[in-house]
């Protein structure tokens, strides 16, 4: 009896009490990129070489698909430039950029998402979220506070890293740290959440840093004026608002 019960209990405890890596990653994705039905933040990026950017980002969920509106306020040479991103699970994102000096709405070819966002150390993909299906996830460690996940690209060579590790906080599923490694386990890039606040009922990272360990450069990011579930209209995410920014959400 004892002999039979033991394996059954083992199996039970595993499925009830332990989450597998994919579930953890999926919850972390939800906590990082999908909080609420919609949201707004005023973002400041300070790059270690002295440059800085300030923009407002609006986001709305359409199931797992999402739409983003980004409006630049600083520096003044990109002031009033705006971006529209329609992010899809099943196909490449649609992206547009508005250049006010030319009154030009330019469609941007979906490119390498692992290149600098607005000249900072954050990548485009760090801002809009990396599709968890791109990687194979393993739970490599569980501490009192964290799940430690190791993620390896399914298609080798599809990203500049060999793998990355994420420290996901158990209580909130907020990734508080991510380390990117090249072949030979050499860590070269590191993300760290510096401050978390509970806003409109959602645990939100409001300060974070991305470090380039090879060059020594880093970009600090802070989120201000965060609001969730504002009831953003669908049509905010169209060409009309690229050209005429929705003042009520930017001011």
């Amino acid at each position: 009896m004892k002999k039979i019960l033991f394996p059954i209990l083992m199996g039970l405890s595993f499925s009830v009490f332990a989450m597998n890596a994919n579930e953890i990653v999926s919850k972390a994705e939800q906590a990082s990129y999908y909080q609420g039905q919609d949201g707004r933040a005023k973002v400041t990026m300070n790059i270690s070489d002295g440059r800085s950017r300030q923009f407002v980002i609006l986001r709305k969920n359409f199931g797992k698909d999402q739409k983003f509106y980004v409006y630049f306020q600083r520096p003044s040479d990109v002031r009033k430039m705006s971006f529209l991103i329609h992010k899809y699970m099943q196909k490449e994102d649609d992206r547009w950029m508005f250049l006010p000096a030319l009154d030009l709405v330019k469609r941007i070819a979906a490119g390498d998402k692992r290149t600098s966002f607005a000249g900072s150390h954050f990548y485009y993909e760090d801002v809009s979220g990396r599709d968890p299906k791109e990687d194979k996830h393993e739970l490599v460690d569980t501490t009192d506070d964290f799940y430690v996940i190791k993620s390896t690209p399914k298609k080798s060579g599809s990203a500049e890293f060999a793998y990355y590790k994420t420290w996901i906080h158990k209580g909130t599923f907020i990734p508080t740290k991510a380390s990117y490694y090249k072949k030979g386990d050499k860590e070269y890039r590191q993300y760290e959440a510096l401050k978390v606040q509970k806003l409109d009922g959602f645990q939100t990272v409001t300060e974070a840093v991305m470090r380039d360990l090879e060059s020594g450069g880093e970009t600090k990011l802070s989120y201000n004026e965060v609001k969730y579930n504002m009831g953003l209209e669908d049509n905010l995410f169209t060409e009309r608002y690229l050209k005429n920014p929705p003042k009520q959400y930017l001011k």
Binding site: K42, T143, D145, F146, W167, H169, G171, T172, I174, T176, K177, E192, A193, L194, K195, V196, Q197, K198, L199, D200, G201, Q203, V205, T206, E207, N224, E225, V226, K227, K251
Partner: peptide, 24 residues
Amino acid sequence: VQAQSLPEGLGSTIEENFSDFESE
């Protein structure tokens, strides 16, 4: 320690609110 430490405010139950944008 850096890997294990919690960022400021993580897990806090205190609800915070940003004031609306300052009128410029």
